[in-house]
Computed example of a mutant assay.
Amino acid sequence: MPMQRLLLIGAGHAHAFVLEAFALQPEPNIAITVVSDSPFAAYSGSVPAWLAGECTLRETQIDVAALCQRANARLILSPAQTINSLLRHVALENGEQVNFDVASFNIGSTLTLPQQHGEQLPKLLAMRPLSSLHQRWQALQNEISHLPDGGTQRVLGVGGGAAGCETLMSVLAQLRQQRPDIEWQGHLLSAANELLPDAGRLPRWLIKRALSKAGISVHFEQRGETLIEGGVATHDDKRLDADIVLWATGAVGHPWLEETALPLDKHGFIRVENTLEVTGQPSVFAVGDCAGLTPALPSAGVYAVRMGPHLANNLRRACHGEPLSSWQPPKRVLALIGTGDGRAIASRGALGLSGRWVWEWKKRIDARFIARFNPPFED
Rank of each mutant, 00 (worst) to 15 (best):
M1S: 06
P2G: 04
M3S: 11
R5C: 02
H13R: 05
V18E: 00
V18R: 00
E20Q: 14
P28F: 00
I32W: 00
I32L: 03
V34M: 06
S44C: 06
P48G: 08
L51M: 12
G53P: 04
R58D: 14
I62P: 00
I62C: 01
R70Q: 10
R74K: 12
I76H: 03
Q81F: 03
I83W: 03
I83F: 10
I83V: 15
N84Q: 12
H89S: 12
V90K: 04
V90Y: 14
L92S: 02
L92N: 09
E93F: 07
E96L: 06
V98W: 01
N99R: 14
F100P: 00
V102H: 05
N106K: 07
G108M: 06
E119M: 04
L121N: 11
S132F: 08
S132L: 14
L140V: 05
I144E: 09
I144Y: 05
S145Y: 12
S145R: 13
T152M: 11
R154T: 14
V158W: 02
V158H: 03
G160E: 08
G160Q: 08
V171G: 11
Q174H: 08
Q177M: 08
R179G: 11
D181S: 07
W184S: 02
Q185L: 13
L188W: 04
L188D: 08
L189Q: 09
S190M: 00
N193F: 05
N193D: 15
E194S: 11
A199W: 07
A199H: 11
A199R: 03
A210S: 15
L211R: 06
K213Y: 07
A214Y: 07
I216F: 03
V218W: 13
V218K: 08
F220E: 11
T226G: 02
L227H: 05
L227C: 14
I228C: 08
G230V: 03
T234Q: 01
T234F: 04
D237I: 08
D237T: 14
K238D: 15
K238I: 03
R239T: 15
L240W: 13
L240S: 08
L240T: 04
D241Q: 14
V245N: 01
W247S: 08
G250E: 04
V252W: 00
G253M: 09
P255T: 03
W256E: 01
L257Q: 08
P263N: 03
P263E: 06
L264W: 13
H267W: 10
I270P: 00
V272N: 01
T275R: 13
T275Q: 10
L276Y: 03
Q281F: 07
V284T: 12
A286N: 13
C290Y: 02
A296N: 13
S299R: 15
A300E: 08
G301M: 02
V305M: 05
G308T: 02
H310L: 09
N313D: 07
N313W: 02
N314K: 05
L315D: 08
R316K: 02
Q328L: 15
P329F: 10
P330F: 06
P330S: 12
I337C: 07
G338M: 09
A344Q: 04
A344G: 06
S347T: 10
L351W: 15
S354D: 11
S354E: 09
G355V: 13
W357Y: 10
K363D: 12
I370A: 05
A371G: 11
A371Q: 15
P376K: 12
F377S: 11
